[in-house]
Every structure is written in C-alpha cells, then in structure tokens.
Computed example of a mutant assay.
Amino acid sequence: MGVDELLDQAGNLKEALVDYASSPGFARRLSQALSDFSGLGSAAHDQWAEAVESLLYDPDQDGREPLLDRYLRTNKTIAPEERLVYEGWRERNVIGVFRVDARKGARLSLHNLIDEMDYPAYATVGAEAISVVQRGGYVMTRLVPIGDIWTISGTIRLFGPRDLPGVKTLAASLLKRFPTLVFNNPANVEQGRRIVGEHHTTFLNLFGAHIVSGTGADIIAAYRGFLNACNQASVAGDSEASALVTAAEQIAPDDSFPPDLAESDDVALYHHPQMGVSFLVCYGQVEGAYRTPPADAEDPAAELLRGYVEDKTVPGYVLEDLAAKYPDTVDAAYQAALSNPGFRWELDGAALLRRHRPNSGPGKDVPGVSPVPSSLIDEYRRLS
C-alpha cells in the first residue's frame, strides 16, 4: 500500500477501536480514566480522547488488560490483515513528548525526549489538521505503526519552543508514570540490564544471597540499605555527584509501602539479575507449601500458592525458582493447589505461567531499572 492507503486504513481501524472503548459496557472504566486526565490542563474533548487512548493501550489502575487486548481476544471476526495491524499497535505503540524537527504536508519528523529516538509520523486526518504544529515546538501524542510508517493516534497537545521547561516536566512525569517508555530504544534496554546487573552484585555483596526474608519492617530497612548501597556505588569517586544523591528514606518513604507489606511478619526481598527487586508478602508460607505440599485445595497453604500463581505482581521467575528448589515436591504441591492430580511442573508449569502472565516471559520482560535521559534527569529528580 501507498502512504495514503495506509493512512485511510489506520483511520478506519482506529475508528472501530474508539467505538468499542466508548461503548456502554466500558462506561465505568472510561469515567475513571477521565478523572485521571482531568488535572492535566487540556480541553474537555482532549481529555476524553486521551482517556480513550489510555483505555485502549494501558492497563487500568486495577491491573485489567488494555481494551485493545480484550478487543483482539474477544472479536473473532477481525480480518487477518487487520488483526496484524492491531497486534502491531498493541506491541509497538509509543506515547511520548516529541520535539518537532520538521513538518511537510501530513508528515512530521519527531524526536522523542523520553526514548531519544526519531519518528517520521503521519496524521491520518490530513495535513490541515497539523498545520498549527510549529517546527522547533513540541507535541505530546501517541504513535502507532502501520506498514513501514508511524501514524498519530488520538490527540496532539501542542507546545511552543519557549515551553521547553514545562515540556521537560511533562516528559519526566510521563516517564515516572510509565517507566518502561524508555525501552522503545534498544540501547536503553541494554543500559537497563547493565545497571540491574550492577545492582544485583551490590545486593549479593550486601546480603549474601539473592533473597532476604523477615518482617515487613525488616525488609523495608533492608531495601533502604540496598538503595543506599546502590547510590554509593554509582557515585564512587565523584564528590560532586555524591552531594546530589537522594537518601533512601526519601526515595522509599514509609507511605510508599502498602500496609499489608509493612505490617506483615512474612516478607521477602528478592533480586533478579535482570529484572531487579520484588517484594513478596507471605513468601515463607508459600515456600512452605512447596517444601511440604498441602493436603488438598482447601488447605490454607494451597490457597496461598494459588494466590501467588494468580497474582500478576508476583514474577513468574519467583515461582520457577521455587520449583527448581523443591523438584521432589513441586508436582504434589500444584496437584493439591489446583485440584489436578495429573499436573507435572516440568510439562505444565510454563503453560500455567503463560496463562496468568501473558505479557511476561522470554522476549517480553524488560529490566527492572529504567535509565533516565540526561536531558530529563533534573526534572525527574525534582519529581522524586
């Protein structure tokens, strides 16, 4: 297809998604999304459009899947070629704050301040709709791919060249809300992995193992000690940088930890060499279920094990780690917890994890630490 045909197709496919997201069945989710965007200073219509965009592409506050995922899963009548486009939008949509380097007709040359990549992007609604976009100015928008081009999805928030200080604040705020945005750039993925690897070494040196257990208070203190150790390692030999380091109590204040963690007597701090830190409430009891399998599905230990399997905040590699630690009893543990006497971890474990964590696993997981672009570091620190 030529560019014009691709833009027409993108416009039609997007219209179908907007109709889906704004249908009565999602009114409550749309209302919640609208409240999330009400304080961002944009006009009411733009807030509505931004809320619809967020519903389509981002998980909601309760962790429910983006509506685009649901649309693809439940709509069996999508033509194969259209499904491929939608899948590209799901996997590669890019929300960002962009510098406008050029405008020609319906085409914009954009540089993303967050992932530091360049995007040639087209407006599906035509050149006239973007005639007010200034070269040297800035826009906040979302881009989606079709064919070999990018198209603008949803609204464009405009900023002039003199708005750069506020634009940086907006970009840093967006990155703070969605830390994985930097990983659109493969170089940032590699940098994130390097940083997490260094942190893993720090963790092992500090605690002697990749996991440490205790009460909630113990683990909060351990985590803050780990943060301080990482900060000290990052500025070693640089006295000027040392003066800018933020204390762990400021990075992780008391109110940043959920009450169930802070008040629990059974919490683990787990560090993965690529994914970073996880907090695991009731970890010791779940490990006990692996060590001594529960009697049946009604056993409280079985309920805890099922909870870990179903809880998407518990990384799959934690369950894999426990299975490897207790190879002689893992099958019996899951047979009881799942009421499935034929379950075998070696044969069925991977499928179980895929079912409960479809967006995680090899090739999908990103590092647990997001590098911040140098141009946004000051604003990001201020927001922290």
Rank of each mutant, 00 (worst) to 15 (best):
I95S: 15
R99G: 05
A102W: 08
A79N: 09
R92C: 03
N112C: 15
R103D: 04
L108H: 02
E87I: 14
E82K: 12
G105D: 13
V100K: 02
N93M: 08
V97P: 01
L113K: 08
G105A: 09
R103I: 07
S109F: 05
K104C: 15
W89K: 02
R99K: 13
A102D: 12
R103W: 03
I78V: 09
I78F: 07
P80C: 12
K104Y: 06
V100T: 07
W89M: 05
R83A: 12
I95M: 11
R103M: 03
R103C: 01
K76Y: 10
G105I: 08
V100I: 04
I95V: 13
R92W: 11
G88V: 09
R83I: 06
L110D: 06
L113G: 06
G96K: 00
V94Y: 01
R92I: 00
R99V: 02
A79S: 07
D101P: 00
L108E: 04
L110T: 09
T77L: 09
T77I: 03
K104V: 14
R83M: 08
S109M: 06
P80R: 13
T77C: 00
R83C: 01
K104R: 14
N75F: 00
L110G: 14
Y86S: 13
I78G: 05
A106F: 04
W89Q: 07
A79T: 07
E91R: 15
P80N: 10
I95C: 08
I78W: 11
R99E: 12
L110F: 11
D101K: 02
I78T: 03
A102Q: 10
D101M: 00
N75G: 03
V97W: 10
T77W: 08
K76D: 13
R90P: 00
P80E: 15
N75V: 03
R90H: 09
F98H: 02
A102V: 02
F98T: 05
L113H: 03
G105M: 13
E82C: 14
V97I: 07
R107D: 09
G88C: 04
T77K: 13
A102M: 01
E82F: 09
V97L: 06
D101G: 08
V85W: 11
R99N: 10
G96H: 06
I95Q: 15
K76C: 06
R92K: 03
N112V: 02
L110N: 10
V85K: 04
V97Q: 00
G88M: 06
V85C: 12
L108R: 02
R107M: 14
D101V: 01
I78K: 04
V94F: 03
